[in-house]
């Protein structure tokens, strides 16, 4: 089973949930797919055994073969190419903006002149490691690189189907999140009981409904803010899987880089309960089809 930990709003506690859930269970693989700022390693301190460079194919134009027909520009879904045809004896030119390129390959495939070849552009690294019996993979996007989905896909290639997989997803509701959660069996939405938390929770719920992935909500820092997240969940028939209190103990342990289950054993039971809760809802969702 693949469980993704998601949130619309950032900073609600995705990594806290992902790491503590991973440490409370057996036969787990954790994937940190928040490749723009991976932080699960800070709490797990895994031994990295392997680093694999991640790259995407970007076009390179052989201007000797190019007739400036503009086909590549036309087919580029990411608007990353400009073709200047040149006139009055001025030579044409093709401008490629690699930071906008998703590496889909359409330009080179559809170039009639065979003038485009693909060259690899490094965008980051995938790190594979372990901590005791826990398997660990994360991606680290190079600073200044804008395109995280290709790296997230490369992290997900290491998914171990013989294990329960926990994916720590990036925040938000755009392409990186979709890429991270695609193929998940269940999503845990971590939110907080504030207007911001609720606003972004609603957006994330819309995304997951579209993706048809069953999900439930964790309310973190549940004793601050207001009751609007809870009444929204009730109204939308969304299960609340767990509530985590706004506790100094958790904050201190977080700032020391120590997962709370390592400090306070009672939390392990809570996270095991969370997992059982997920399994129950997942089974129900499966049998309703």
């Amino acid at each position: 089973m693949i469980i993704s930990i998601v949130s619309g709003k950032g900073g609600t506690g995705k990594t806290t949930v992902a790491v503590n859930l991973a440490l409370s269970l057996k036969n787990i693989q954790i994937l940190d797919c928040d490749v723009e700022e991976p932080n699960a390693h800070l709490f797990l301190k895994p031994r990295i055994k392997e680093e694999v460079k991640a790259s995407i194919p970007v076009p390179e134009v052989d201007e000797a073969k190019c007739n400036y027909c503009g086909k590549c520009r036309e087919v580029c879904a990411y608007h990353a190419i400009a073709v200047l045809s040149g006139n009055n004896g001025k030579k044409g030119s093709v401008l490629i903006f690699p930071h906008l390129c998703h590496g889909c390959g359409a330009c080179s495939l559809l170039c009639h002149e065979g003038a485009i070849k693909e060259v690899n552009k490094e965008i980051g690294v995938v790190e594979i490691g372990e901590k005791d019996h826990l398997q660990f993979v994360d991606g680290r996007l190079n600073v200044g690189e804008a395109m995280s989905p290709p790296l997230i896909r490369q992290v997900k290639r290491y998914i171990n189907p013989t294990r329960t997989v926990i994916i720590d997803a990036p925040p938000g509701t755009s392409c990186p999140v979709i890429t991270a959660v695609k193929g998940s069996d269940f999503c845990v939405l971590v939110t907080e009981p504030t207007p911001f938390g609720l606003n972004d929770l609603i957006l994330a719920v819309e995304v997951l409904r579209k993706l048809k992935i069953p999900f439930g909500v964790i309310i973190n820092r549940c004793d601050i803010g207001d009751g609007k997240v809870e009444s929204y969940c009730k109204q939308e028939d969304i299960p609340i899987l767990m509530k985590i209190p706004f506790s100094r103990e958790i904050a201190v342990s977080y700032s020391e880089g120590v997962p709370i289950v390592k400090k306070d054993g009672s939390y392990q039971d809570k996270f095991i309960n969370l997992y059982l809760n997920i399994c129950g809802i997942k089974n129900e969702a499966d049998s309703s089809y």
């Binding site: 580029c76 990353a80 400009a82």
Partner: peptide, 20 residues
């Protein structure tokens, strides 16, 4: 091009250039 998520400037530049 104004609606593009990315590459609006590039394609607007292209359009203007193509108008000579």
């Amino acid at each position: 091009n104004a609606q593009f998520q990315g590459g609006a400037g590039i394609q607007s530049g292209q359009l203007v250039v193509s108008k000579g």
